[in-house]
Computed example of a mutant assay.
Amino acid sequence: MKTVLILGAAGQISSYLIPALLQQTDFNLKLYARNANNRIKVTDPSRETVIDGDFNDKDTLNQAMDGVDAVYLNEMRDLDSVKNIVAAMDANHVRQFIGATVLGIEDEVKGAFGQWNTSMIESSITKRIKTAKVIKDSDLTYTLLRLAWLYNKDGNTNYELTDSDQP
């Protein structure tokens, strides 16, 4: 059975991801977050393990990687954190990475909406371009999710797949 480490497991996106993974897969989940024991409610103790840690706590991060098949990072804004995560993945021979980032890091949004998007979150885009480069320059197999504007509407899981390596 596969094990997925969810970093930032107390976040909004993870609050949708965790129940979906529990329902749609047989994966075990390691749920990693600051103050995790106070912020995460386990619904399936046989498949969920809560880990209280910080991305800069290298010992806890390395321990969390033990036995993991894939890592999902809920937030890619902090450069040092992403570097620590990649180092821990390398040290523990974890190869699969999925990271949530923002729309616009590949200058993929054209026209008026692209201009508006950039004007609204330019500093976020700039930070995440740097963290995405850390992932791209690693030897990890990765997927970078470029999330559009999120809003709370249960059941709305629309998405579009793109390949940034294509012209």
Rank of each mutant, 00 (worst) to 15 (best):
R95V: 12
Q115H: 07
I51G: 07
L22G: 04
G11M: 02
P45N: 13
Q63I: 02
G67W: 06
P45V: 01
D26F: 00
T141Y: 04
S119G: 07
T157N: 14
V134E: 05
N28F: 09
N62D: 10
V71Y: 10
R47A: 01
T101D: 11
T126W: 01
I125A: 06
I129G: 01
N84D: 04
V86A: 12
E106I: 00
K2V: 05
D137H: 11
R128G: 05
A132G: 07
I6A: 11
A20D: 12
L17I: 11
Y72Q: 11
G111V: 12
N74W: 07
M89D: 05
L145E: 08
N56V: 04
I105K: 06
L161S: 13
E160W: 05
Q115E: 15
D66P: 00
Y72L: 11
L21N: 11
W149A: 14
T157H: 15
S15C: 00
N28D: 09
A9F: 10
M65V: 06
S81R: 09
M76S: 14
D69E: 12
Q115T: 15
N37Q: 14
V109Q: 14
V82L: 10
G53V: 03
I6F: 09
N158P: 00
N84C: 05
S164N: 08
I85F: 02
D66E: 15
L5C: 10
Q63N: 15
V50T: 04
D80Y: 09
T25V: 02
Y16S: 13
S46F: 02
F113P: 04
I129P: 00
R146I: 10
A64G: 06
H93F: 08
G114L: 07
D26H: 05
I13Q: 14
T126S: 13
D139K: 15
K153I: 04
V71K: 12
V102A: 13
T131G: 05
L150P: 04
D54E: 09
T162G: 10
L17D: 06
V102L: 12
N74E: 14
D26W: 00
L140I: 06
M76H: 01
T60P: 02
Y159I: 01
D80I: 08
M1C: 06
A70V: 04
K83S: 09
Q63A: 15
K136F: 02
T60H: 05
Y16G: 14
S15K: 02
L79K: 13
L17T: 09
A36G: 05
E48D: 02
A100L: 14
